[in-house]
Design a binder for these strands. Structure first.
Lengths: 257, 257
DNA sequence: CATATTTAACTAACTAGTTAGTAAAATAAT
DNA sequence: ATTATTTTACTAACTAGTTAGTTAAATATG
């Protein structure tokens, strides 16, 4: 287990192990939640002994918080990038809506962790999200608000509450992916299949072009432009599930002998 | 323990205990999830012995499924009622959007259970939701689709994908409540406080009036009409949480001795 | 050798589900 | 109507298994 020959020093190898633990944690926590994830499983996936988790991070919750922070790093940057692009406020907002849609499925782990954190927050648990408020959520929310206000002031967008536009836009994306397995049962077709997703992606932006732009013809043009400028990224992250029904649980073991 | 004098027969008392168990289950499961809820705690809250849960429902999952079905009964009726009201398609849709907003906070337990079920579905777990697909979700989705198509055909609503209108509308409501504890940390004000909620309720409908109606003046009128016809219901269901931070976990006990 | 990293072995606490038994109500027999 | 028998509703105590976290020893590495 003397690792790859490229890594020699003690420090480097330790850092690498640490990173492997974080990777495995993101994987396990995003799929099974804080309570559902098993430390033993994380250790195994990282190829280390369970006690090592407690050597690097003091507790399961500490590990969870670290995993959350490590995955959140990239989100802020890409989110702000679209909002600061060189384009009209309306176009920047559509770009950012599209980026949000794409990010949900390319970085599904992050989305999954966030959804579980929201539930935990409602229960009054979770310190884990607190640090991300300042580093990620506040900057993104604020910037988006500014862009929308700018678009409204310039007359490009309709004069409605910017937060409401935000809720409707992000909410649509969140709900699409969150409800996908349910809608699959309702409609028979899988919203996570690439074709369906590509269509939804297009309809999402076109809808915004028609709904929040004062001049709907202009909105349609901007939507088309944004869509043609940003092709759908490769299938990223939502781990495909087998047939919806039969599948033995993991987090809640059934033990009827 | 001969209970109240009004209940004499064995059968009646048994039905009552069964109902008490279901009530306690809804409470516990909605607050702690399937895995997080403790059978002992459910039994205690229902005032019965734990083994009785297994006498009435064969397993924890069976109890969960029964609780879910019992709470879902009311949702279909109220949802369909607004969609079938006597009004234009556009107005019926706004009514139904408003009913959805109100239902989320008056029947928070249902919403909470649904959100957790969505996550479970993504993991490939959950038979519990399957029966509700036919009895609740399919009828509601179908009817809403019909209403939207009617509104588009009549020219009252803009010609965009009906499903996209649904995602944007319901998604906005879901995200508002789901992200409330996070937004409270971001903005400092509590979205679940009654004043804020009343405002959001109004902005939600007004936004739809401006965004999905072909004639925005007409949309504004319909929105005002729907809002004045339906006052905000009394504070229903989201259990208020103390100060966001400090609060010992329940589902994931920390046992560092 | 001394220090940082890693592990095998262990434990204390907890939890879903079971079992064996009881009290009282319902039903059948006399 | 009284007694005997069966069924229903319910409980106390227990089992078997799981899991987060600890400890002390081992293994590199500088």
């Amino acid at each position: 287990m003397t690792a790859s020959p490229s890594i020699r020093t003690k420090r480097e190898r330790a850092d690498q192990t640490r990173a492997r633990i974080l990777d495995a944690s993101i994987h396990e926590f995003s799929e099974n939640g804080l309570a559902g994830a098993r430390t033993e499983q994380i250790a195994e996936a990282a190829g280390v002994n369970k006690a090592l988790l407690y050597y690097y991070f003091k507790s399961k919750e500490g590990l969870y918080a670290a995993a959350l922070e490590s995955i959140a790093v990239g989100v802020r940057a890409s989110g702000l990038a679209t909002l600061n692009a060189n384009a009209s406020a309306g176009e920047r907002f559509l770009k950012s809506a599209l980026e949000h849609f794409d990010r949900i499925h390319t970085n599904w782990r992050f989305q999954s962790l966030m959804q579980q954190e929201m539930v935990r927050l409602h229960r009054g648990e979770a310190h884990a999200l607190t640090p991300l408020v300042e580093t990620v959520f506040k900057p993104l929310t604020t910037r988006m608000h500014e862009v929308l206000l700018e678009g409204i002031a310039s007359g490009e967008l309709i004069d409605v509450d910017p937060s409401q536009i935000r809720y409707a836009t992000l909410g649509a994306n969140v709900l699409y992916f969150l409800s996908a397995p349910l809608m699959r049962m309702v409609s028979g077709t899988d919203p996570l299949e690439r074709g369906a997703m590509g269509l939804r992606r297009k309809l999402t932006i076109e809808f915004l072009g028609q709904s929040i732009f004062r001049d709907r013809k202009h909105g349609a043009k901007v939507a088309a432009q944004v869509l043609s400028a940003t092709p759908m990224p490769e299938n990223g992250g939502i781990p495909p599930r087998p047939t919806p029904e039969f599948r033995k649980n993991k987090s809640e073991k059934v033990r009827h002998l």
